[in-house]
């Protein structure tokens, strides 16, 4: 399970405050705590409140880089903010994200290639979010083709995100996304990786953590490779690690949870 820690995001009050006050400690503690909890990479999003998004992104990346060299997922829709974040974060970063829209692909795919970055691509096109799995898979195919055209042939660098929506507004989507996860695996050999912005599934619900971890397990069973989630939700992490154990992706031992974390931290 490739875990991208979601907590460094200006949508959260503590991070918004940290950005406004240039408080490095809050950001650095969040970076360290997420990695300690088993994150492979850290998402970095300045949120809607930053006065100058580029400046805020550069500050966030520099602040994180003082405590870790872990891969960073630069999370923005704005190309100039993305470019600045990638330049600061260095090789091995992740673009979060492009969509399947032509105008986005032509900007972000070459940018991924230029910075030797991985890229997350949402299955959204000019018509919006498809209503079913087939629509998602169709856009994913266009994304894979675009990656190849731009020289990204290593499918380890391409993450397809089939876009999960809140269960309280779109209750059939979780199943459609699982179908899409299965279909995306058939698009190329080796297939692109898959990822979800997991917390979206529970947006606005009362039992967020329970919904998140239940769906994480279901999505992993459908082939999900990674997720943007809160790694400090211990039960969520444990559920994901256990799902992979039950799928024979890790060798069992009594302390398999510890073994997983130790592999992530030393690897």
């Amino acid at each position: 399970m490739y875990v991208i820690g979601e907590r460094i995001n200006g949508m959260f009050k503590d991070v918004r405050k940290a950005i406004q006050e240039c408080n490095t400690e809050i950001v650095q503690n969040l970076a360290k705590a997420q990695l300690e909890a088993g994150a492979n990479a850290l998402d970095v999003n300045v949120g809607p409140a930053a006065a100058d998004a580029t400046e805020a992104m550069v500050w966030l990346v520099q602040t994180i880089r003082q405590v870790t060299q872990a891969p960073l997922a630069i999370d923005t829709t704005k190309p100039e903010v993305m470019e600045a974040g990638l330049a600061e974060a260095g090789a091995g970063s992740i673009i979060n994200s492009t969509t399947g829209q032509e105008e986005k692909l032509t900007v972000f795919m070459p940018m991924a290639q230029k910075h030797k970055a991985a890229i997350i691509a949402l299955t959204i096109d000019e018509k919006g979010i498809p209503r079913d799995a087939a629509g998602r898979t169709e856009i994913a195919l266009r994304i894979v083709a675009s990656a190849f055209e731009n020289g990204i042939e290593d499918m380890q660098r391409l993450f397809i995100d089939p876009v999960i929506l809140p269960v309280n507004v779109a209750q059939t989507v979780p199943q459609q996304v699982m179908d899409a996860l299965r279909e995306v695996r058939l698009l190329s050999d080796p297939p692109p990786k898959t990822v979800l912005g997991l917390s979206n599934v529970s947006q606005g619900t009362a039992l967020r953590s329970l919904i998140n971890r239940t769906y994480l397990v279901m999505a992993i069973a459908a082939g999900l490779d990674g997720a943007i989630l809160d790694p400090m939700d211990e039960e969520l992490m444990n559920a994901g690690i256990t799902a992979e154990l039950l799928l024979d992706k890790q060798v069992y031992c009594d302390d398999y949870l510890k073994a997983y974390l130790s592999s992530v931290k030393s690897g």
Binding site: V251, Y252, C253, D254, D255, K258, A259, S262, S266
Partner: peptide
Amino acid sequence: DINIQKQVNILVTEMGLDA
């Protein structure tokens, strides 16, 4: 027993022996 092998490795590393 690969499962016990892994467990022993965790036990000794928890005592401070580097893997």
